[in-house]
Simulated scan of single mutants.
Amino acid sequence: MTWLKEVLGTEKAVIAMCHLMALPGDPYFDKEKGMDYVVEMARKDLHALQDGGVDAVMFSNEFSLPYLTNVKTETVAAMGRVIGELKSEIKVPFGVNVLWDAKKSLDLAAATGALFIREIFTGVYASDFGLWNTNVGETVRHQQRIGAEHVKLLFNIVPEAAKYVAERDIESVARSTVFNNRPDALCVSGLTAGSRTDSQILKRVKDSVPDTVVLANTGVRRDNLIEQLTIADGAVVGTAFKIDGKFENHVDQARVKEFMDDVNTFRKPKVAV
Rank of each mutant, 00 (worst) to 15 (best):
T2A: 06
L4T: 12
K5V: 08
E6G: 08
L8W: 09
L8I: 11
G9I: 02
T10R: 14
E11R: 14
A16N: 05
L20Q: 02
P24I: 02
E32F: 07
E32D: 13
G34K: 12
V39I: 15
K44I: 13
L46M: 07
L49V: 09
G52D: 03
E62T: 15
E62H: 15
F63T: 04
L68W: 06
V71A: 14
A77P: 02
I83G: 08
K87V: 05
F94A: 06
D107N: 11
T112P: 00
A114F: 05
E119T: 12
G123V: 05
S127N: 06
T134N: 12
G137E: 12
G137D: 13
H142F: 08
Q143N: 12
I146K: 07
A148G: 15
N156C: 09
I157L: 01
P159T: 10
A162M: 04
R168C: 09
I170L: 12
V173F: 09
V173I: 15
S176Y: 10
N181K: 12
P183Q: 04
P183N: 05
C187Y: 02
V188N: 03
G190N: 12
R196A: 14
S199L: 09
R204A: 03
R204C: 03
R204P: 01
K206Q: 09
S208K: 04
A216I: 02
A216M: 03
A216L: 00
T218R: 10
R222H: 11
T230Y: 08
A235V: 03
A235G: 07
A235K: 11
G238V: 11
T239L: 13
K246A: 09
N249L: 04
D252T: 15
Q253T: 15
A254Q: 14
E258C: 12
M260W: 05
P269V: 14
